[in-house]
Write a protein that binds this DNA or RNA. Structure first.
Length: 428
RNA sequence: GUGGAUGUAGCUCAGUGGUAGAGCCCCGGAUUGUGGCUCCGGUGGUCGUGGGUUCGAUCCCCAUCAUCCACCCCA
């Protein structure tokens, strides 16, 4: 055991039993994105370290202590991407996708953060990200929320998730609010815990997030971001909530909702669930109007969000929401008794796959008794087993045995087999 | 990164200071070529890893790795 090589901590294998569930989820995503007119973009999973430092923010937890950063053979500092937005903006800029045009993009793939693993939190995890560029109005913010809501609806998750909203205001308004907040905290510094004191100089907004009950009263009295919004952001947010109400989307305004990445401004939102314990955020995002410029582009507004695939799949499993149709099926299991029949079965299998393209046919390999082959046919989940032995070979017939229905075994001539199978498959 | 719990067969778990068991799974047989039920038999474990205490450790102690829970963070 000790000399066996193990997977890296917090990085998981996706096993055969699990992959159909992921594929089901991915199909839903692809379908959804097409319906809303979003195009897929794929970026490298490694970028220059500076990209993340500049976008996410030097003093955020992600950059300070969670990135997989290393020097490559040239001595350049590279980082395994901890999130997708920065790469997406970089790729869009680099390829001219933002030049005098709007974009609706999505992507999917692994992200890496060196955190302590827990259920729903892994060092390699997967996100589906959705980003839109070039649109200032709240309509695109609303579209993003509606799009995500439609996904919950399709997956059956809607009753189990809740939408939380907030506005961070413009960068100037947030800076002013930050000063007011720091003043409030400094006036009550006796109540601040150690974490919060540290954050006072780095990221005071995060103190609002604290779950420490000793600080609850002081936090309740803290100035509210909503009261410090600039006029433009206030109107933007008001229009956003009005449109959500018109669309019938329930939401809760959470004035303490802030984001761990520095690039956000104005709208921020989170979909959360109670069903996953402490890793209950299943989807989160917001507006980042300053990021494109910060990364060297012309001022271009952006909105986006990311979903945690592991968390969503965990949620689907916890709530038993994986539809039966998501599982792969086998229609036919082809058995063969004896060497001659085995050779013939291989060819027969290919001919049947040509003739009946929609059929899922599994060929028995590896010999064994008839009994054990039929046992395997049963285990495969196939509806029927095709039986090919010496008798059948001699008479040019194949046996069709029904494994899930009370029905007589059939004997069909080889040249009529494909047609018979088509008919049988059409029954279901 | 902090605190706590757990780690025994592929899976779910019993168990004891004298080097291990059940159920499920898997394989074979009862039924010379016919699954699901039943019965019988079998494969499979350096008891997470490395040290220590002991005549002797899977059990006690320490360390380490991994998983889980909470904090933290976030998707």
């Amino acid at each position: 055991m000790s000399n066996k090589i193990q997977a890296i901590r917090g990085m998981n294998d996706l096993l055969p039993e699990q992959s159909p569930v992921w594929q089901y989820f991915e199909r839903q995503i692809q379908h959804l994105m097409q319906r809303y007119g979003y195009s897929e973009i794929r970026m490298p999973i490694i970028e220059q370290t500076a990209l993340f430092k500049r976008s996410i923010g030097e003093v955020t937890d992600i950059v300070e202590k969670e990135m997989y950063t290393f020097d490559d053979r040239n001595g350049d500092s590279l980082t395994l991407r901890p999130e997708g937005t920065a790469s997406c903006v970089r790729a869009a800029l680099e390829n001219g996708l933002l030049y005098n045009q709007t974009q609706r993009l999505w992507y999917q793939g692994p992200m890496f953060r060196h955190e302590r693993p827990q259920k729903g939190r892994y060092r390699q995890f997967h996100q589906v990200g959705v980003e839109a560029y070039g649109m200032y109005g709240p309509d695109i913010d609303v579209e993003m929320i509606l799009l995500s809501a439609r996904l919950w609806e399709a997956l059956g998750l809607m009753p189990h998730v809740q939408l939380e909203l907030n506005s961070l205001g413009s960068n100037e308004a947030r800076a002013a609010y930050r000063d007011a907040l720091v003043a409030h905290f400094e006036a009550h510094s006796d109540v601040l815990d150690e974490d919060s004191r540290r954050r006072l100089s780095t990221n005071p907004l995060r103190i609002l997030d604290s779950k420490n009950p000793d600080m609850a009263a002081m936090l309740a009295d803290a100035p509210r971001l909503m009261d410090h919004l600039d006029e433009e952001s206030r109107v933007h947010f008001a229009e956003l909530t009005a449109m959500l109400e018109a669309a019938g989307i329930d939401y809760v305004i959470n004035p303490r909702l802030v984001r761990g990445l520095d690039y956000y401004s104005r709208t921020v939102f989170e979909w959360t669930t109670q069903a996953l314990g402490s890793q209950g955020t299943v989807c989160a995002g917001g507006r980042y109007d300053g990021l494109v410029e910060q990364l060297g582009g012309k001022p271009t507004p952006g909105v986006g969000f990311a979903m945690g695939v592991e968390r969503l799949i965990l949620l689907l499993e916890t709530l038993d929401l994986i539809p039966e149709a998501a599982r792969p099926r086998t229609d036919v299991y082809l058995t063969a008794m004896g060497d001659a029949a085995s050779r013939e079965a291989m060819l027969l299998g290919e001919r049947l796959r040509d003739a009946v393209p929609g059929m899922h046919l599994q060929l028995h390999c590896g010999g064994g008794s008839f009994k054990s082959q039929i046992k395997k046919a049963d285990k495969s989940g196939a509806r029927m087993a095709l039986l090919l032995g010496e008798d059948e070979l001699a008479s040019g017939q194949v046996g069709i045995k029904f494994l899930r229905e009370d029905r007589d075994q059939e004997s069909v001539a080889l040249d009529a087999l494909a047609a018979r199978l088509k008919t049988l498959l059409a029954e279901a």
